[in-house]
């Protein structure tokens, strides 16, 4: 079996386990490439029936508009139900306070909205497109990862995972985060997108965009980020990850289609999350966020 088939078999087995073991699963959908791949895998798993669970998008309000447009298109195409949790609502209700200053981002705030939405809609399993190769704390993550009723990840009390046996037993109030594409790398995701001819947001491909330099990174100009407008300049860029606009930097690129993007990633000397400002806040930035319930 070739690499992509091997990874696809593994992921679909996991997705079928989620549908089999849980009462109310949900697919966490950001509109990024990983969640688009996951959505496609979910469809394959249950054909000719429809996907038997809804999608949940935590909307920071600072998304790239291209991502939201494609999200809505895909919801129609796969005929799934979409729930949206708005970070703006959490801010308006005074549950979280907007960060201040030039590094202000809603990335951390979305954890509160996510946990509240999970509790409100009583989801017991939340599938996501996180991968172990993305970041060193994620390399320790299980495929079925238990969160307590505060949504916390306890890295020292993780259940051992043996063979392909997945233990999804939980107490009421707890939930499980599930990562079906744990063992995929960035390149696998791209090659799968090419193989299955999946549509992804246009910002993954090279385009001209107004950017400015911050700490050596090209940040997109938008109303959500404080910057000196004089310092802005236009550049051919693309995004390697699609997060909140306030914490996702662009990379210079001329890659206009899947073939050239794949060539570029093969030759790249910077890691995928090297352009994620949210990981750079401290040595254990991802681990600290995961402990309090971050996706």
């Amino acid at each position: 079996m070739d690499t992509l088939s091997h990874l696809e078999e593994e992921a679909i087995y996991i997705i079928r386990e989620v549908a089999g073991q849980f009462e109310k699963p949900v697919l966490l959908f950001s509109g990024g490439k990983d969640s688009i791949v996951l959505l496609h895998l979910c469809q394959k798993a249950f054909l000719p029936a429809k996907i038997p669970f809804p999608l949940l998008h935590i909307d920071t309000g600072h998304n790239f508009p291209e991502t939201i447009a494609l999200r809505d298109e895909l919801v129609k195409k796969y005929s799934v139900k979409l729930h949206v949790g708005n970070v703006q609502d959490s801010i308006d209700q005074g549950k979280v306070v907007e960060e201040k200053g030039k590094y202000a981002s809603r990335n951390i705030l979305q954890t509160t909205t996510l946990l509240e939405t999970i509790e409100e809609l009583k989801f017991d399993a939340c599938m996501g497109g996180a991968r172990r190769d993305e970041e060193k704390a994620r390399a320790k993550e299980r495929i079925f990862s238990v969160r307590d009723d505060f949504g916390q990840w306890n890295e020292k009390l993780q259940r051992p995972e043996l063979f392909d046996i997945l233990n999804g037993q939980i107490h009421t109030g707890e939930n499980i985060r599930v990562f079906p594409i744990s063992n995929w790398t960035e390149l696998d995701v791209w090659e799968y997108i090419r193989h299955e001819q999946l549509e992804i947001p246009s910002i993954y491909f090279s385009h001209r965009r107004k950017v400015f330099l911050r700490d050596g990174q090209l940040m997109p100009c938008s109303d959500f980020i404080m910057h000196d407008t004089d310092a802005a300049f236009e550049e051919s860029v693309r995004f390697r990850t699609v997060g909140d606009m306030s914490c996702t930097a662009a990379v210079p690129s001329e890659a206009v289609d899947l073939d050239t993007v794949i060539d570029e990633i093969r030759g790249s000397s910077i890691s995928e999350r090297g352009a994620r400002m949210d990981d750079k806040r401290s040595e254990g930035a991802m681990e600290e966020r995961k402990k309090v319930g971050y996706f």
Binding site: R132, A139, K140, E155, K156, Q158, E283, G284, E287
Partner: peptide, 16 residues
């Protein structure tokens, strides 16, 4: 990958 592992210089959990 874990902060406690880097503090103690040992591997505690399985890393992929």
């Amino acid at each position: 990958g874990l902060l406690t592992e880097r503090e103690q210089g040992i591997t505690i959990d399985v890393s992929h």
